[in-house]
């Protein structure tokens, strides 16, 4: 079911639409959070906080087909909060994205290493565009930048990544 229909159902009082909405976006938001927080636990907390914030402000959000971008914006803030909290704690950070079997794929390992060397802004752009498959318009909305700027920065990021590999 499309987001617009789910919002209509939710407005009509069908709370199962909320489950469907969260269920549809949870995996990709968790994936985003895993890349932006030091541990898997932090990422899960950030994803949970993202959806709780989304529900808290759902009435203020007017559905215009940009729900995904709005959710990513909340997720970015939640990750920043989680990162700050994790930084304050003394525990050594453990990379969330280092899933078992990752190093086995040489190309993917190279890519991960190259991505880590990229400036955070370029890495974020590449991941949002290609790993999360967000449209340029959605990225522009998340970053509050014109679409053309996003496009040219994305091109530069891809060029930089190619040089590093």
């Amino acid at each position: 079911m499309r987001d617009g229909e789910l919002f209509e159902l939710l407005e009509a009082g069908d709370i199962s639409a909320l489950d469907e909405l969260i269920g549809a976006y949870y995996p990709e938001i968790l994936r985003y959070c895993l890349r932006h927080t030091p541990t898997r636990e932090c990422a899960e907390d950030a994803a949970q906080e993202t959806f709780l914030n989304c529900v808290r402000h759902i009435e203020a959000y007017v559905h215009r087909g940009h729900f995904r971008a709005w959710l990513y914006k909340i997720a970015a803030n939640a990750c920043a909060d989680q990162f700050r909290r994790a930084k304050d704690s003394a525990e050594p950070p453990e990379r969330a994205a280092d899933e078992p079997g990752y190093e086995r794929a040489e190309l993917k390992a190279d890519l991960e290493r190259a991505l880590a060397k990229l400036p955070a802004e370029q890495r974020e752009l590449l991941l949002l565009r290609y790993a999360h498959e967000l449209t340029l318009r959605e990225i522009a909305e998340i970053r509050r930048e014109p679409m053309r700027t996003v496009q040219s920065r994305l091109r530069a990021a891809l060029k930089a990544l190619r040089k590093l590999m």
Binding site: I15, L18, D19, I22, G23, Y26, P27, E28, L30, R31, L34, R40, E44, A47, Q48, F51, L52, C54, V55, E99, Y102, L107, K108, L111, L126, L127, Y130, A131, E133
Partner: peptide, 23 residues
Amino acid sequence: TLRSLPAPEPDAGRMRRTLRLCR
């Protein structure tokens, strides 16, 4: 390669908890 980066499976228990809290 970027597109095929692994997407870790969400923990079902954690997801259920998020859904419960959101409700």
